[in-house]
Design a protein around this nucleic acid. Structure first.
Lengths: 211, 211
DNA sequence: CAAGTGACTTACCATATGGTAAACAACGCG
DNA sequence: CGCGTTGTTTACCATATGGTAAGTCACTTG
């Protein structure tokens, strides 16, 4: 409806990527059902059919967004889960990674929330993508517990709780409003620290790691 | 589409309540945009116009659901926040209340998730309803911190984190699937206990309350 | 018992939506 | 230069959706 960049109809266009970008943004911020192909297309200065040329259906578009962006997200987390040192350091690295994403590309996290909600083949895809990561995280936690560094808990609960907490702090903006806070980067930085401490107290077994 | 109970068209019908019940259920499980008035009505054996007779628009229906059900939810929490003893006991009572609701009437919590997401006047209403409760909870936490029973944290973060965590454990079923768990009451009871311990470690200052 | 009212239903409608079919423009290639 | 390919548009469509208007039917009340 505004962005009539009008790339030459000829060859080699970056349209596909631009559609994926817009879809990520709109699905995340306005919701999947609430984003029509017409709206999405015209926000790029395209007709709906151009979108349907690249992605045969809306559902397939959603799947493509997930495949591109969630895969990226997961690889970032996988990296954090592998790189950093032992025990708490590693846990901290993962949480910090998520926060970094939450600040720089909040739409990625909102997309996950959204896909988790929508009833489509896309959500199964998300589960399939997420499962190995969960499995790795679970094994990490279990190892830490056996080593006596983390309190013994059901690792799956720890994951789900942490996941919900971090995602919640980063995406539940409406709830923030009810708390009388406007979300800002400054606040998120502060809360990241507090949340890490919160998690540490909950997980780590006291061994005066330098309080 | 099936439930053609056919109450007498005459007087005094419970239709209004039945519509609210169905709306709560469908909005929570299928989402607001994804639930058409036609579908909702026919699930009650009514025509769409009967629904529009009681509620002038879909948005107003959503607001009515919130007004009826979220108010109820909040009063339950208010009660938990007032009744129980001091310190951790009270915190525990609140969390247990939420879990009780999550087990017995999961739709109530799912509705909150849903409304938090939908962009409508309804979400402002939710914020308005939730704000006083948040305020009370915040004051409670602050008092506990001053009294030296709870660790000193930003109360709003504690609320948001706890809120997200509990709601997440209770509603993020898809995430559970990725963890290889089918949600069941048995599991929830177990996780309620674990989550409480998790929270206690994070919040309570050690004073050997009977570890 | 006639008029009104409460609780619906049937008819209807404008609009939005996902999607199909076909035309069309620019380019690369033989 | 003609011709297929790629990317895109214009036309079109069936269906779904929220909502309006008016009718209907039973019961209540003056």
């Amino acid at each position: 409806m505004e962005r009539v960049v009008a790339s030459v109809p000829g060859r080699k266009s970056d349209t596909k990527e631009r559609i994926l970008d817009a879809a990520l943004h709109l699905f995340a911020t306005r919701g999947y059902e609430n984003t029509s192909l017409d709206f999405l297309a015209s926000s790029l200065g395209l007709s709906k059919q151009a979108v349907l040329y690249w992605f045969k259906s809306k559902d397939i578009l959603l799947q493509a967004v997930i495949e591109r962006d969630v895969t990226e997200l997961i690889s970032v987390l996988e990296a954090a889960l592998s790189d950093a040192g032992e025990g708490w350091e590693r846990m901290e690295a993962v949480v910090k990674s998520v926060f970094r994403i939450g600040v720089m590309r909040p739409e990625l996290l909102e997309l996950i929330r959204e896909v988790n909600r929508v009833d489509s083949s896309a959500s199964e895809m998300l589960v399939a993508l997420l499962t190995p990561l969960m499995e790795r995280a679970s094994q990490f936690l279990q190892a830490e517990m056996v080593a006596g560094r983390f309190r013994k808990r059901d690792p799956r609960l720890v994951i789900l709780a942490t996941y919900s907490m971090v995602l919640g702090v980063l995406t539940d903006l409406k709830a923030m409003k009810a708390l009388g806070e406007e979300p800002s980067v400054r606040l998120l930085v502060k809360w990241r620290q507090e949340l890490l401490t919160f998690l540490r107290d909950a997980l780590l077994i006291e061994a005066d790691t330098g309080r």
